[in-house]
Structures are given as C-alpha cells and as structure tokens.
Amino acid sequence: MIVALPFAAAGLAMLGFILVCMVRLSIGPTAADRAVALDTINTLVVATMVLLGAAFGLVVLMDVALVYALLSYVGTLYIARYLERGLS
C-alpha cells in the first residue's frame, strides 16, 4: 500500500486537533458547549477521512466522508432542536 506522506502527516495532525477538541467535549460546562465541540469534531473527522483517503489511495474513505458529513449535519440539527425545547 502506497502512502503519500504529506497527506498522512496532515491526517495525523488532524487527529491531534480532535484530541484538543475532546478536552472541551469533556469539560464543557453546559450541554451546548459539548454540542459545539462535537460539531467541530465532526468537521475535523470529515477532513481527516478525506486526507487519509488520499494518503492510502482509498476512494472508499471519501465516500464514507461524504455520508458522514450529511449524517453528522442531521445529528447536529437534532441536538440543537433538543437544546431548544427538550425531547419532543
């Protein structure tokens, strides 16, 4: 398996940023803070998947990234609706 090194390095850096965001996900004082951290992590995961897809030459990873982007958007909207007026 050929690895394009710059893309793999960028993907690894992205994983580091995700860890930094997880700090906010765990300490965030309110539920809204945690939701924001989760939204940020979702964006970074999409970028990481695309970068790793280029690094390993796997186009399948990019398909997964597309579907993940759409589903995480729907998930964010549901969390926001829940923050707005509870589970109803």
């Binding site: 309110t30 539920a31 809204a32 939701a35 924001v36 939204d39 964006t43 999409v46 695309v50 897809g53 280029a54 186009v59 990019m62 398909d63 990234a65 597309l66 982007a69 759409l70 958007y73 964010t76 909207l77 969390i79 926001a80 609706r81 829940y82 923050l83 707005e84 007026r85």
Partner: peptide, 28 residues
C-alpha cells in the same frame, strides 16, 4: 470529484448547523 463534493457539503452544512446550535443555546 469526491473531494469537491465533500467541500461543497461542508460549506453548505457547517454554518447552518452552527446557526442551529446558537439558536438552541439561546433558547435554552
């Protein structure tokens, strides 16, 4: 092509999602 589509999705969905979160936070 896949990369451009992922870019387009992010550009369209990210601000909308954050707007929904801000609105939910203010209403809570």
């Amino acid at each position: 092509v896949r990369a451009f589509l992922a870019l387009l999705f992010l550009l369209l969905t990210n601000p909308t999602g954050s707007h929904a979160l801000a609105r939910g936070a203010h209403r809570s």
